[in-house]
Amino acid sequence: MQIRPGQNDGRLGNTEVSSPKSPPLNTRIKGPQRALIERAARQADKSISDFVRDAAIQEAQNTLLDKTRFELAPAAWAQFIALVVGSVARAEAQGRCDATCRTRCRSCCLRA
């Protein structure tokens, strides 16, 4: 926090409390790409800076999460694999029902 002399925050007489600005992150964006970003920012009701920052942060988090390593004990790993295999089997069963079931009742899929 910085205190700037000569300005009033309503509590401290003649000082105002403010947060220091972070250093800028500059990038060059070509016309069509910038137009796309501007359109999306308006659609999201955000400034271009807020939109680009939020999108960059989300992409950074996704990238890091995609590379995150986790370790499980053998019993927990077996349980995890069983859940994944069961989930895939149910999804495949639903896909077959959608392709072959004339009434789309899904009754053959819900018996998992």
Rank of each mutant, 00 (worst) to 15 (best):
E71K: 13
V88E: 06
G6E: 02
Q2F: 07
W77K: 14
A35R: 15
L72Q: 11
C101P: 04
F80L: 13
Q2N: 09
L72F: 11
I57W: 02
A82V: 01
M1I: 09
Q43C: 07
Q43V: 09
P32N: 10
T63V: 09
A89G: 05
I48N: 00
F51A: 01
R102I: 11
M1L: 10
A82N: 07
A82E: 07
M1S: 09
K46L: 15
A78I: 07
R39A: 11
G31Q: 09
V52Y: 05
A93S: 14
K46T: 00
G86W: 06
R90T: 02
E71N: 13
K30V: 08
A99V: 08
P32Y: 03
L25H: 14
C97S: 14
W77H: 14
E16G: 02
E59S: 01
V85D: 10
T68P: 04
M1G: 03
S107K: 14
C109L: 13
I48C: 06
T100D: 14
S22M: 05
G86I: 04
Q2S: 07
G6Q: 01
L72C: 07
A44K: 10
C109H: 08
F70W: 06
F80M: 06
N62I: 15
A112M: 15
R28G: 03
L64N: 08
N14W: 04
D45I: 00
G10F: 07
I81P: 00
R102P: 13
T103V: 09
G86T: 01
I48R: 01
R96Y: 12
G6R: 01
P20K: 07
I48K: 03
L65S: 07
E92G: 01
A99M: 11
T63S: 12
